[in-house]
Nucleic acid binder design. Structure first.
Lengths: 122, 122
DNA sequence: TCAAACACAGTAACGATTACTATTATCGGT
DNA sequence: ACCGATAATAGTAATCGTTACTGTGTTTGA
């Protein structure tokens, strides 16, 4: 199941299911969801918080952000010093205790900038 | 319907429905959702992106962030200079075009810090 | 006065996710 | 090797939040 983690993009549970189904024909969708949750709670993968209705997962654990493209709705990586950014949020003076800051981006991905008209919307 | 906006907290659609139902007994849940969407797309209210499964709304349009409490799961306001923080994100060098940065916080709210044991979890 | 446009209640439908159940595989001990 | 307990799974039902649909009443404007 760790093989799922090594998938390239930012797949949803359904995408992972569709990807693995041909390899393991009797794979169940429930199994995919369950194992993704286990991996995510173990910290082996990340569950991404985006605007898209279905949850996306990411095997990359190093510093980077995610941007959802307005055009193609894909999730792309944005390389940056996340710790530096989130540190500023954690230091906001407030009576509450801030433990984590999550930053998500929205915009237009490199691909859709180059090919402007195509509203692939898949 | 604008009266909904003036509600204090960060209500979900269901909460708004439950709040208004006694006042307008023949109110339908579909109406609440539809009007919240209209208000949100008009920019009159904000739709919050949090970890909690149901969408929360906020009538405050001025600069502030939101933090979800690990203990009580409530959404609380965090006062800060949002524009300053997001500006840093928008300036990240990347081949993509970043249009918006959304920051959400997680932590422990003032209330739960003061009364540590109660895992109200409502 | 009348008809087109609108808002709504009520309910059905939907998509993503979780829970449940029965079955199969795994493993440690005798 | 056998056996009971534990765990993982497939398959499916159920759930949750949300949206879409349908019929009805209400407003508006000529």
């Amino acid at each position: 199941m760790q093989t799922v983690k090594n998938s390239k993009e930012h797949p949803t549970a359904e995408v992972i299911y569709a990807t693995l189904k041909p390899l393991y024909p009797e794979l169940s969708l429930g199994t995919v969801y369950r194992n993704l949750n286990v991996l995510a709670s173990n910290g082996d993968i990340l569950r991404l918080q985006t605007d898209v209705p279905s949850a996306c997962f990411d095997g990359r654990l190093d510093d980077h952000l995610h941007m959802v493209c307005d055009i193609c709705n894909k999730v792309v990586d944005v390389e940056c010093d996340v710790k530096n950014l989130t540190a500023k949020c954690l230091n906001i003076p407030t009576p509450h205790k801030i433990l984590e800051a999550k930053i998500s981006l929205r915009g237009i991905c490199e691909n859709c900038i180059k090919t402007p008209q195509q509203t692939t919307m898949n």
